[in-house]
Amino acid sequence: MQISPKSKGRAKPSGSRVEIFIWYFMRLSGVALFVLALAHFSILHFIYDPSKETADFILGQRWSELFWRVNDWLLLTLVVLHSTFGVRTVVNDYLHSPRGRVITLSLLYILTLLLLAGGTMAVASAGAPGA
């Protein structure tokens, strides 16, 4: 029986430890995000409705419990890293000049750091006295 090579995921890389780490990270974080991201979307679109999710709702209700702040921070970290590695794969697929890759990936990694820093600040300090 014939199986399209694209039915499988990207072939597991050999040699580079970084590439093997990323290959496993994409799959493990993907399974975690299957639960975390779909739960996040379901809670905030099916159980609650965006028309009710004001800043007061987030600070007074959702983020009044440490559990949800930690949960949201975990989701933030995993989704930012998972999507960064995903976009990195796309960049490497379409950009072939070494110069273009270095510039584009540098911009991508700067954006990644900004998202992690800004998101962590928001989830850790929003609503705290003096914040």
Partner: peptide, 13 residues
Amino acid sequence: LVLHVLDIYLVGD
């Protein structure tokens, strides 16, 4: 995701 981190940053700010 980029938009969502920006909007959630505004909750406190």
